Amino acid sequence: MPGLHHLDVWIAHADELDDWSWLFARLGWNSDASWTGGATFAAGAVYITVTTTPNTANFPHDRRRPGLNHLAFTGGTSAEVDTLMAEAAAHGWRPLYAERYPHAGGTQHYAGWLENAAGFKVEIVAV
């Protein structure tokens, strides 16, 4: 059966976990497990682990390099996306494409884009 089972997001420093923990909680994901420097967040059968590891290379994340550019999450109604976007800066996320918000992805696509200090980008899509 096709579908996404899980993703692992490796972060460089344990303090980056706070950004992610706020975001997942705000989006309604459940924290299934946590440990020093990491946590797992679940939505239905899909889960995402965010963790530090001694196996990471010693260079910063750059979403413009080959690999993952961003993660896109459903964010509820357009009003709920607006509220999340307004709260995000207080939790380690800065808006991207603010001058074109909420239609940076086109007139039929209502979404906000955020980036944290480590350079990870997420898209919050109204459904």
Rank of each mutant, 00 (worst) to 15 (best):
M1A: 15
G3S: 10
G3D: 03
L4E: 09
L7C: 10
D8S: 13
D8C: 12
W10D: 12
I11A: 01
A14T: 07
D15K: 00
L17V: 02
L17Q: 02
D18T: 13
D18L: 11
D18P: 04
W22P: 00
L23P: 02
F24Q: 04
F24S: 05
A25F: 08
A25T: 13
L27E: 01
G28P: 04
W29S: 11
N30S: 15
N30I: 15
S31D: 05
S31K: 15
D32R: 07
D32L: 08
D32W: 08
D32I: 03
W35N: 09
G38F: 01
A39E: 09
T40L: 09
V46S: 10
Y47G: 15
V50A: 05
V50L: 06
T51H: 13
T51E: 11
T52H: 02
T53A: 04
T53D: 04
P54V: 07
N55K: 15
T56A: 14
A57P: 12
N58K: 15
N58H: 14
R63V: 12
L68V: 13
N69S: 12
L71Y: 01
T74M: 13
T74I: 13
G75I: 03
G76D: 09
T77S: 09
S78C: 11
A79Y: 02
E80W: 11
E80I: 06
D82T: 08
D82E: 03
L84P: 09
M85Y: 05
A86Y: 05
E87H: 00
E87V: 04
A90M: 11
Y97G: 08
A98S: 11
E99D: 14
P102G: 05
H103L: 05
A104Q: 07
G105P: 07
G105D: 05
G105V: 08
G106L: 07
G106M: 06
T107L: 15
Q108P: 01
A111T: 03
W113P: 08
L114K: 02
A117T: 08
A117F: 04
A118P: 00
G119F: 06
F120I: 01
F120T: 00
V122W: 03
I124S: 03
I124V: 07
V127D: 14
V127E: 14
